Amino acid sequence: MRFPRPDARTKAVVAALAAVSLLATLVVRGRQDLLGVALALLCVLMAMIAAVSVAAARQEGGRRPAVTPTVPGQPAGGLYGIDADTLETLDGREAVRAMRERHRGRGSATGEGG
Results as ranks from 00 to 15, higher is better:
residue 71 V to Y: 04
residue 89 T to F: 06
residue 62 G to A: 08
residue 54 V to K: 12
residue 52 V to E: 09
residue 90 L to G: 11
residue 90 L to D: 09
residue 73 G to R: 11
residue 75 P to A: 14
residue 91 D to C: 02
residue 85 D to H: 09
residue 85 D to N: 10
residue 62 G to T: 05
residue 59 Q to L: 04
residue 67 V to A: 02
residue 70 T to W: 01
residue 75 P to I: 01
residue 86 T to H: 14
residue 54 V to R: 13
residue 87 L to N: 11
residue 61 G to Y: 02
residue 52 V to Q: 11
residue 70 T to M: 06
residue 75 P to D: 07
residue 56 A to M: 11
residue 91 D to K: 10
residue 67 V to F: 01
residue 77 G to L: 07
residue 75 P to Q: 14
residue 81 G to M: 02
residue 89 T to L: 08
residue 83 D to L: 05
residue 54 V to G: 10
residue 83 D to C: 09
residue 79 L to Y: 02
residue 89 T to K: 13
residue 78 G to Y: 08
residue 70 T to F: 03
residue 57 A to R: 14
residue 51 A to E: 06
residue 90 L to M: 13
residue 82 I to L: 14
residue 65 P to F: 02
residue 59 Q to T: 03
residue 56 A to G: 10
residue 53 S to L: 05
residue 73 G to I: 02
residue 85 D to F: 08
residue 82 I to H: 08
residue 65 P to C: 10
residue 72 P to N: 06
residue 80 Y to G: 12
residue 86 T to V: 13
residue 78 G to H: 00
residue 79 L to M: 14
residue 73 G to H: 04
residue 54 V to I: 12
residue 63 R to H: 04
residue 66 A to M: 12
residue 55 A to D: 08
residue 74 Q to R: 15
residue 82 I to W: 02
residue 69 P to W: 00
residue 58 R to V: 00
residue 72 P to R: 11
residue 84 A to M: 09
residue 57 A to C: 07
residue 75 P to L: 00
residue 62 G to Y: 00
residue 54 V to T: 13
residue 63 R to C: 05
residue 72 P to T: 05
residue 60 E to I: 03
residue 58 R to W: 00
residue 56 A to I: 01
residue 54 V to Q: 13
residue 59 Q to N: 07
residue 55 A to N: 11
residue 84 A to Y: 06
residue 71 V to H: 06
residue 52 V to P: 04
residue 58 R to T: 00
residue 57 A to S: 14
residue 70 T to D: 01
residue 69 P to C: 01
residue 64 R to G: 00
residue 62 G to R: 07
residue 58 R to F: 05
residue 89 T to M: 12
residue 77 G to R: 11
residue 71 V to S: 14
residue 62 G to W: 04
residue 69 P to L: 01
residue 68 T to I: 03
residue 78 G to S: 08
residue 55 A to I: 03
residue 84 A to R: 15
residue 76 A to N: 12
residue 88 E to A: 15
residue 66 A to I: 08
residue 57 A to D: 14
residue 80 Y to T: 00
residue 52 V to H: 06
residue 57 A to W: 10
residue 81 G to F: 07
residue 59 Q to E: 15
residue 68 T to A: 06
residue 54 V to Y: 04
residue 73 G to T: 00
residue 77 G to Y: 01
residue 73 G to P: 13
residue 66 A to W: 03
residue 83 D to F: 00
residue 65 P to T: 04
residue 88 E to W: 11
residue 61 G to S: 12
residue 71 V to C: 02
residue 70 T to R: 13
residue 69 P to S: 10
residue 74 Q to L: 14
residue 60 E to D: 15
residue 65 P to Q: 14
residue 85 D to T: 11
residue 75 P to H: 06
residue 88 E to D: 15
residue 54 V to F: 04
residue 58 R to H: 09
residue 51 A to Y: 10
residue 86 T to P: 08
residue 52 V to K: 10
residue 73 G to D: 12
residue 86 T to Q: 12
residue 88 E to G: 14
residue 52 V to I: 08
residue 89 T to R: 14
residue 82 I to S: 10
residue 87 L to M: 15
